[in-house]
Design a protein around this nucleic acid. Structure first.
Lengths: 190, 190
DNA sequence: CTCCATATGGAACGAACGGTACAGTCTAAA
DNA sequence: TTTAGACTGTACCGTTCGTTCCATATGGAG
């Protein structure tokens, strides 16, 4: 194999960062080139499908991270182990706080859910949030909630996270996100 | 005065609708022209500042609507009248549900808080959410909460609304928004 | 009717867009 | 040392962007 100066995997985080900062439509190829340090030739070498493929790849990577680090651990809680369920829900809050850098980072899928790219990535965004809510609901059932209550509480929990991100970003007040997460953790593990 | 076929006030709702649907960067002048039924000449006649002025005017109008219909009523609750405070908090939930068309409409300021236009409209977005949270907190204090609790609960309430909008939009499931609002109302008026 | 400010559509503009083409650079294997 | 092919920068393409400009239409005031 010839040289491999840049890796697709190295580019994706930088791509994610610029899509977060500028949005899909707002991120121009020249900006992307500047942010990644890659010329258009390299960009189109790694992403022959152009900007749509870049965005899709970024979403897939973010989705995979959440699937592995957030959703799967919640789903894998042994039935009946309420204490473990509470522990993993608390761990979710910690991991979410870390991922979003305590409110300094925006949820790309949340932003794409609201903005112009809704149509384009609707299926992936829908699936991401569905799996998140279902994983939390599963954990809450193990923790002792009635299934119906667990579902609404899980919805409200994920909504709380997303809303706190919006408000923390709007107020430019990252600590507010951490505070909201702490209260959420208390509610979930009550 | 010569004819006035179109009014600035008539255009703003249509502008808001297209910014909601396509985002700031995604909404092109030709789309805006098609959506409003106005040529570029008319558009630039009403908004000499171009697209930035259009967005700013829309945000100002939305902000004014919330100020008059949501924030002010909450702020104006007579001190000590806990029952009235609960009633107006319930009325806020009803008005919010109506405004967002039960989850079929997106919060423009929330979307702008996350997306590419963050820098441009940061001050207005920050002020909007700050006034919202403070108004709810004021009502909660009158309803009997301790000031510190009222502040965090108000933050969580507005976050819940914004997050529910994100999730309802992502899942393409408007009723989920109404459900979240109903639960929020129950919590606030408890 | 004549004015004239207001309102309007659309042609035209430069700039920037996303995307393509390709010659050139470099490295690992032969 | 040669060579195949992964990588890279850049010039360039057609398109569309936001904006400007202007000829024209309109309707109340004089």
């Amino acid at each position: 194999m010839p040289r491999q100066v840049a890796e697709r995997a190295d580019i994706l985080p930088k791509l994610a960062e610029i899509f977060r900062k500028r949005g899909y439509e707002g991120a121009s190829l020249s900006e992307i080139g500047a942010a990644t340090g890659l010329g258009k030739g390299s960009l189109y070498h790694f992403f022959p499908g152009g900007k749509p493929e870049m965005a899709e790849s970024v979403l897939a990577e973010v989705d995979a991270w959440f699937e592995g680090n957030i959703f799967a651990p919640l789903r894998a809680i042994p039935a009946g182990d309420a204490a473990e369920a509470r522990a993993r829900l608390a761990e979710m809050c910690r991991a979410v706080d870390a991922y979003f850098k305590s409110g300094r980072r925006v949820c790309l899928l949340g932003a794409f859910a609201l903005a112009d790219t809704r149509e384009r990535h609707a299926a992936r965004v829908r699936d991401y949030f569905r799996r998140w809510v279902e994983a939390v609901a599963r954990a809450l059932v193990v923790a002792g909630r009635a299934p119906a209550d667990a579902r609404t509480e899980a919805f409200d929990a994920v909504a709380c996270i997303q809303g706190a991100l919006v408000l923390a970003r709007a107020a430019d007040n990252p600590p507010a996100f951490a505070g909201a997460l702490a209260r959420l953790q208390a509610r979930l593990t009550a």
